[in-house]
Design a protein around this nucleic acid. Structure first.
Lengths: 333, 333
DNA sequence: TTGTACGCGTTATCAA
DNA sequence: TTGATAACGCGTACAA
């Protein structure tokens, strides 16, 4: 008992191969009775068309790839689930491809992927969503793709995103509203476009409140726990330390918490901390982090939707949410 | 300028298609000069053979799939990276396939995957690594697969694992050595074979130390932070609460820490906490968790190795490591 | 050591 | 609305 092929189905249904193919691909011009007979045969034989053959024959590949690398495994996982959800609905396979943004071989890996593997499209997440060379290559190849949170060349392909600038401003305003005026920032990895945007949102909120920005309160970061820890130690060692800090992501915010714990600085009594991300890190640390919650899974699902849906709108903005938890509180005078 | 095919390379090198194919597949019986000329042509044209065509033609698929679902996104991510590393070395593509173990459609998803997608093999991680129906299907199909941390039918396929029982015993002994005798356990999700094994290891250590096991100190769990939190609250509300607790994974250990924080129980002064996993959660919480560190990435790499390597040994055991951090300390009398 | 002819399972073209 | 036939790009069998 080898593989069940389309010819077997055709024989069982008493029609030609082409007709079976038509039914499979939901083409028009198939008689209702014929269609029913074919579908019955497909079900009876548990026939599953070969992706390789379909792709080789030149039609659709029935596959898309998700290229993902991110400092947060939570982000990657949620993104994969979101894309997968939408793909399952469309009967398309998602091929998740983790890559290493620091390997220096990203362009070659993408080239290898698109050259060897039949694909109906591609989903790119930061930072590769902004890789010029990769974008050029895909555009030249004419391979459709959608991007998540792009930072450059916004109109070269469909994209999903949240308003990072407004999100960062919102969380900063939350800290301002609590009475803080010395608010620190731990910036994100500069190779992510969102990092600069979040920093701009932070500056926006300070400016709108008439609070002078103090460069000493702004520390670089790379989205890692270690970077947050280091930034926290530096900030808390300042002659006049901040009373609140916003970290560009939750892992770094966790590092800030750790720095505070190590120095015996009480959170939030002496230091309010806020982050950015999904709930995964925010809820396992102590105290639970106030964060901007990013709808990562929905971003993935929507990106897949842009790729798979008939066409239409090119860009979709999703909403973020400020989740206030125990790590921030009114400044005690 | 369409796709570069093997015929183009053949023409450029002045040889037949078959000879190019031989070079590509590293077959013997190719003259050195011929081989060199073909390789030059391949490089010059940047030729990349089509996976679809190769698979259809009946040879190898040059792809393997990784089926993964786990309570910890860190685990999934590290596993994907490990498998990927080894696949890259072998010039084989890894197709990461997240699935939902609670969907009730796992068997059908696997069937769909192996029936439609050309694959040289499959890697299964818990809990699907112990899915009887899935194993039967793969065995019947004759598709090679390797398993990570299997719990049943140990000899049906190659596998990688750590000694979960010894690992759990080791961490429990660590707590005993610190002077604790009332040691709690938060068990793992029963659908994972490792859960029962870790519990057995915990019991081993207590028995070896002549410490009576108290059923009241053993709480069920499902590997989630919430389960750890709930278990912690229950344990700390006991008339005679434990002085130390071992959680079957780090997320639950983080929940324990949170429960302690909420009740004002000092860690480790009043409660020592230990977990199980990789460093990702262990290092972002406060205080940093004492854990059994599982070499997740190496498990993935090794699983891929078992699948891709010529043959030979069927099972490989990797070492775990007890990492002592600030969440455990000598019991203060 | 090298080349020729055929087939893998599906879709596209064109005719019926 | 249906069906015959030629691709798709590569590997295998067999011949040279």
């Amino acid at each position: 008992m080898g593989r069940v092929t389309i010819s077997d189905v055709a024989a069982a249904a008493g029609v030609s191969i082409k007709t079976v193919s038509r039914v499979l691909n939901k083409e028009r011009y198939v008689g209702d009775a014929t269609r029913a007979r074919v579908e019955a045969a497909v079900a009876a034989l548990d026939f599953r068309p070969s992706l390789a053959a379909r792709a080789l024959a030149g039609g659709r590949a029935h596959q898309i790839a998700l290229l993902c690398d991110n400092p947060s495994p939570f982000y990657i996982h949620q993104m994969q689930l979101g894309v997968r959800d939408r793909c399952a609905e469309a009967g398309v396979r998602m091929i998740a491809q983790p890559y290493d943004r620091r390997s220096g071989r990203v362009l070659d890996e993408v080239e290898e992927l698109v050259a060897t593997t039949p694909l109906d499209g591609l989903i790119l997440t930061p930072p590769i969503a902004d890789g010029d060379a990769v974008l050029d290559r895909l555009l030249a190849r004419g391979l459709p793709f959608a991007r998540v949170s792009p930072g450059v060349r916004l109109d070269c392909a469909p994209s999903v995103f949240i308003d990072n600038r407004a999100a960062a401003a919102t969380v900063t305003r939350h800290l301002l509203d609590l009475g803080h005026t010395r608010i620190g920032l731990v910036a994100g990895d500069p190779s992510f476009a969102a990092s600069a945007v979040r920093r701009a949102g932070y500056a926006d909120a300070l400016a709108a409140a008439g609070v002078a920005s103090d460069p000493a309160l702004i520390r670089p970061g790379d989205f890692s726990f270690a970077a947050g820890l280091e930034a926290g130690q530096a900030l808390l060692a300042l002659p006049r330390p901040p009373t609140a800090v916003f970290a560009a992501n939750d892992e770094m915010a966790a590092g800030l918490l750790s720095a505070a714990h190590r120095r015996g600085v009480a959170v939030p009594a002496q230091l309010s901390v806020a982050g950015f991300g999904d709930d995964a890190v925010a809820s396992v640390v102590w105290p639970p982090l106030t964060t901007v919650r990013q709808p990562t899974r929905a971003l993935g699902r929507t990106a897949a939707d842009l790729l798979l849906a008939p066409g239409g709108e090119q860009h979709r903005e999703l909403r973020f949410e400020l989740v206030v938890r125990a790590s921030t509180a009114r400044l005690e005078q």
